[in-house]
Amino acid sequence: MITVLFFAKYRELLGTAKISLSGADIDLTKCTVAALKASLAERGALWCDVLAAENTLCAVNQDLAGDDTPISVGDEVAFYPPVTGG
């Protein structure tokens, strides 16, 4: 099982803050951020737009991650738009 979080504009666009995926949803033995994005993009055009956006940021276990970052069972993955704090 992995947990996928969405924040701010993306949470609103997709209508969800958190989803859980199991090995039945996606192959977690050789998963990466890119593979997770490809799998989630199949959920529809909105998902595709959010995940394909050039400025979408991703964190794995609360560290910034790239497309090649591996994902394994128990990980927490987050997708979010550019940050605007301060």
């Binding site: 987050a78 738009p81 940050v83 605007t84 704090g85």
Partner: peptide
């Protein structure tokens, strides 16, 4: 902080 910390 403005460019990396996850606030929106």
């Amino acid at each position: 902080l403005k460019t990396e910390a996850p606030f929106w």
